[in-house]
Amino acid sequence: MAKSESSDIEVGKMYFRYADHFPGRISSMCKLSSVVKAIEEKLTKRQLSMFKKDIFGHFLECRSFPFSGVILHNLLLRQVAHEEDSLEDQLWFQISEHLIRLSIVEWCLVTRLSFGVDTNKKNDEMEQRLRNTYFGGVHSKLNVDEFDAVLKELKCEEMDDMDALKIALFYFADRVLNARKNHCQINFDWLDQVDDIQYFRRRP
């Protein structure tokens, strides 16, 4: 049987045998409900309408984010080795006698997020207009808590509607899609990238 390129595990076999399964605890840093609430409270009616029509707008209808660390842990224990020559990012799992695939395309169909070729802009190609205009040109690192404090001081009703939308899109991406603990740093590269909103919308 063929071997997986990433390990010595045979393709079609689980990385962890049933006899090697172990207990674990997985937690979620995603703060979907609080982020949705903050966006709804911060944006004006016109800006919120714009957000609802944009790439993350459908998430505003989600009032809860059920999460089970036990289910996720046990699912990961059942991950199966697969051929690595596929052009499509994918994971395989064995549930009872069934092999189940989750590819990036299927994930994006479920979440309605975009997917495709990642065309990362280089840092020297990105402008820092939003950072300079609304965040005092800050170049030092800010953690999640510190950024939240700065965000609260922004007056969206006095801002250009498109700029308010861009900052809200960045806030959602940083806090929900890239969720992490409050002491972790803000990814200001994303704030720079969202200023080119068509590029940001196409990013996988």
Rank of each mutant, 00 (worst) to 15 (best):
S4W: 00
S4H: 11
S7W: 01
K13S: 07
F16K: 07
R17L: 10
H21Q: 15
H21D: 15
R25F: 01
I26W: 08
S27L: 15
S28K: 06
C30Y: 08
L32T: 02
S33I: 03
S33M: 03
V35E: 06
V35I: 15
V35Y: 07
A38S: 10
A38V: 14
I39N: 09
E41M: 08
L43H: 06
L43K: 05
K45I: 11
Q47K: 01
S49I: 01
M50D: 03
F51A: 09
E61C: 05
P66Y: 05
P66L: 03
S68V: 03
G69N: 07
V70R: 13
I71K: 12
L76E: 08
R78E: 04
R78A: 07
V80R: 04
S86C: 11
S86I: 03
L87M: 13
E88A: 02
L91G: 00
W92I: 08
W92H: 14
H98W: 11
I100K: 06
L102P: 00
W107S: 13
L113N: 12
T119R: 12
N120V: 09
K121R: 10
N123R: 08
D124V: 11
E125S: 14
E125D: 10
N132D: 15
Y134S: 00
G137C: 00
H139E: 10
K141V: 14
K141Y: 14
V144L: 15
E146S: 10
L151N: 12
E153P: 02
L154E: 02
L154Y: 05
K155W: 05
E158A: 13
D160F: 03
D161T: 05
D161Q: 08
D161P: 08
D163C: 00
L165G: 03
L165R: 10
L169S: 05
F170N: 00
A173W: 04
L177C: 15
R180D: 10
K181R: 12
N182G: 12
C184F: 12
Q185P: 09
N187I: 03
N187H: 04
D189H: 12
D189I: 14
W190F: 15
L191Y: 02
D192S: 14
Q193N: 09
R201L: 06
R201M: 06
P204K: 07
